[in-house]
Simulated assay, not measured.
Amino acid sequence: MLDPSMSNPAAETNSERVASGSSFYAAMRILPRAQRDGMFEIYSFCRQVDDIADADGPRDGRQAALQQWRNDLDDVYAGLPPARLQPLARTIAEFSLDKADFLAVIDGMEMDVVSTIVAPDLQTLDLYCDRVASAVGRLSVKIFGMKHDDGIALSHHLGRALQLTNILRDIDEDADIGRVYLPRETLTASGVSPLTPETIRASRLDLACAPLIAQAKEHFTVSNEIMKRYPRKVVIAPKIMAQAYGAILDKLIARGFGTPRPRVRVSKLRLIALLVWNKYF
């Protein structure tokens, strides 16, 4: 998550309260009501399945909980949503959201449950980014009202840009819970060995991170080119997310990846400025 943003608890839905305190909340809060409600339902879904993946319980129990979500989605798409998913069912119907994208998100979360991810190969990392980030984008662009091909392309590029930035920002926090999302190819090429969370935590990682930085920057560039083709009101939310995460990437580059690696954030003032600028200028 990024820095906390402003909230108005009295006016929030349950799904909004789940999202409050994130940059996502700030970006989506300025959308028209129907779009805002839809995005908060998607966020709530993602947050709940992510919480299952990150829980401390036995792996089989967490897999069962994720399978229950798949079963519940079957019921939603069969027109028999559980009571707790009726708001999500309304969003799915209103914006014609694809079941496959929700299932992809669950599959991505399950990758963290089946086995602890430590230095995946590049292909596995890209699959993970597609499932946990770009699939969310494919749901979101339907709510924003983008054309199909542009929406798919933006989901691909911006989803990966955001997720790679997350990975670069959270290296040490992930290592503390036994996870390493940096790819084994770049770690090995930069001389990091053995590929364990403890070694990664203690290593200078500038060379290992450089290819991911380049990829993220290229994905941001392509994303911005796609968004330039649309009126501000259509792409205001993804544009704010791109700018906020782009600012984080710039700060990470300026900080470097030696040790220690202080946490990088975008200030609340910077986030407010992005909101105001994109809404009124």
Rank of each mutant, 00 (worst) to 15 (best):
L269N: 01
E94G: 04
I236L: 08
L158I: 01
D3V: 11
A34D: 15
D149E: 15
A273C: 03
T116V: 15
L195T: 02
R179E: 09
D176C: 07
L158W: 03
F40I: 02
F281E: 08
D206K: 00
A19L: 05
K217S: 13
Y43C: 07
K147D: 15
D150V: 03
G61P: 00
A19K: 06
V49C: 08
C129S: 14
G137S: 10
S20T: 12
K228Y: 00
R131M: 14
R255W: 01
L207K: 14
L187Q: 05
S193A: 15
S115E: 15
I52R: 09
F281W: 14
A133Y: 07
Q67H: 12
D75K: 14
D50E: 12
R184V: 08
P262R: 03
A214S: 13
P82H: 03
N71G: 09
P58R: 12
G21F: 08
R47L: 01
K99M: 11
T199L: 04
R229S: 08
N166M: 04
I171Y: 10
G191H: 05
M109G: 11
M227C: 03
I272D: 04
S96R: 13
Y128E: 09
L103P: 09
I253V: 15
V132P: 10
A153Y: 02
V180W: 07
Y280P: 00
G108A: 06
M39E: 07
A208D: 07
L122G: 11
M1C: 06
K217T: 13
P262A: 04
P238S: 04
D56F: 08
P87Q: 06
T13M: 06
C129H: 12
S134D: 08
N71A: 14
L122C: 11
A189M: 05
A216T: 01
L187G: 02
R229F: 00
K268R: 15
A64K: 14
V49S: 08
E110W: 01
V222A: 05
G151E: 10
S5P: 00
F45W: 03
I143G: 07
M6D: 10
L249Y: 05
C209T: 05
R232S: 12
V141I: 13
P87Y: 02
A83G: 03
T186S: 15
D50C: 08
E16N: 03
T188K: 14
V132S: 11
R204H: 14
A78H: 05
G178K: 10
M109H: 05
D250G: 06
G57T: 09
K228D: 14
A175D: 04
G258V: 01
D75H: 11
S5F: 06
L269I: 11
K228M: 06
M28L: 08
D3A: 13
E218M: 10
C209S: 14
D54L: 09
R47N: 06
A175R: 05
R261P: 00
R160T: 03
M227S: 07
R131H: 14
R184C: 13
I171K: 11
F220S: 04
D126L: 09
V113N: 13
I200S: 10
T199V: 09
L187E: 02
K228E: 14
V222S: 02
P87A: 05
L168E: 08
V141Y: 15
Q215F: 02
L207W: 01
R204W: 02
V132Y: 09
R131L: 13
D74A: 12
R261N: 08
K251L: 11
F24A: 05
K217Q: 15
D121L: 03
L164D: 04
L66C: 06
